[in-house]
C-alpha cells in the first residue's frame, strides 16, 4: 500500500503540513504517516509528536542529518507523495527554506510544499495546473497526476500568455479563446474540467486565478533544475503562494523555456 509521508518540524508550520498531508491522503486514498528528523538526538520532539498523536497519525523520529534523512524517507518504495513545509517562518512572501529547496530539487517523486500560514480546507476538490503549452511541461502532469486523483477532484488548467505564447490572432476573441482552450487541453491535459487563459506574469496570475477559482492545491511540473527559467517561476510561486503546491518532477530537458511553443 502507498502512503503519504508528512515531514514535520518543531515549528507552528508543522500543523498545516500535517493537515495538507491528510487532505492529500484523502485525495489519493492513501494513509498518512508523519516523520520528524532531528540532527541532535537530545532535542525535544514534543511538538511534532503531540501534533501527530492528536491527529491519530503514526509518528516516527529519525536521528541524523536532516536533508539526507528526509530524502531517504521519501524515497521509500511505499511513499506515494511527500509533504513538507515551505519554511518555518510565517508572515508574507519569503523564499522557500534551504532544506525544502534541497529536497524538492532532488526528490523524483511528487512533493507538496505547504506554506506556513495555511489553514487547510476540509478536502481538496479543485486543483490548479499551470501549463506552458509544451510537451515537456505537460507530460509529467499527464503521467503523474491522474493516478493521484479520485474521480471527484476537478482540475483547472491555467495557461499564462508570455511574449512567446501570446496569441497571434483572435478573429472572434472569446470564441477563439474557447477554441484555443479546447485544443490546448486536448493536447496537454484532456482530463481538465476547464482552462483559464491570462496574460503574464505567471506567478501573479497563478495567485489570482487560485483565488478566483477557489483552488485548493496548485500543481506544477518542473525539471528540478533550479538554474533554469522555469525554476524561477516555481520559486516565485512557492514564495508567494498561500496554497500548497504539488511539484511533479519532469525528466531533464535542454529546451530553452523562453522559446516555448504556443498552444
Amino acid at each position: 500500500m502507498s502512503i503519504v509521508v508528512a515531514v514535520l518540524d518543531s515549528s507552528a508550520a508543522a500543523r498545516p503540513v500535517l493537515e495538507v498531508a491528510q487532505r492529500i491522503g484523502e485525495m489519493t486514498e492513501s494513509p498518512v504517516e508523519a516523520v520528524h528528523v532531528r540532527s541532535d538526538p537530545l532535542k525535544s520532539v514534543e511538538t511534532p509528536e503531540s501534533l501527530a498523536a492528536r491527529n491519530e497519525v503514526p509518528f516516527q523520529v529519525l536521528d541524523g542529518t536532516v536533508e539526507p534523512e528526509i530524502l531517504r524517507t521519501m524515497d521509500r518504495a511505499d511513499v506515494l507523495v511527500g509533504v513538507i513545509g515551505a519554511r518555518a517562518t510565517t508572515g508574507g512572501r519569503r523564499p522557500v527554506g534551504r532544506t525544502t529547496l534541497h529536497v524538492i530539487a532532488r526528490m523524483n517523486k511528487p512533493v507538496v510544499v505547504v506554506p506556513p500560514d495555511l489553514i487547510a480546507p476540509g478536502s481538496f476538490r479543485r486543483l490548479l495546473v499551470p501549463l506552458e503549452g509544451t510537451e515537456e511541461s505537460s507530460q509529467p502532469v499527464l503521467d503523474r497526476l491522474g493516478p493521484l486523483l479520485r474521480s471527484d477532484v476537478e482540475v483547472v488548467v491555467l495557461h499564462v500568455f508570455t511574449d512567446v505564447t501570446q496569441p497571434a490572432m483572435l478573429d472572434r476573441p472569446l470564441r477563439d479563446l474557447q477554441m484555443m482552450g479546447r485544443e490546448f487541453l486536448t493536447r496537454h491535459y484532456p482530463h481538465a474540467a476547464g482552462i483559464e487563459f491570462r496574460p503574464g506574469p505567471v506567478a501573479m496570475r497563478v495567485a489570482e486565478v487560485s483565488q478566483e477559482q477557489s483552488i485548493d492545491l496548485i500543481v506544477l511540473s518542473w525539471s528540478q533544475d533550479i538554474s533554469a527559467e522555469r525554476a524561477r517561476v516555481v520559486r516565485e510561486v512557492l514564495s508567494a503562494s498561500a496554497l500548497p503546491v504539488l511539484l511533479l518532477p519532469a525528466p531533464p530537458s535542454n529546451v530553452d523555456v523562453t522559446k516555448a511553443a504556443s498552444v
Binding site: D171, D176, M179, E183, F184, V263
Partner: peptide, 12 residues
C-alpha cells in the same frame, strides 16, 4: 497561417 497554425485555432 493554417499550415503553421499561427492562430492556435486551425484545429477548428
Amino acid at each position: 497561417l493554417d499550415l503553421d497554425d499561427l492562430t492556435g485555432t486551425t484545429a477548428g
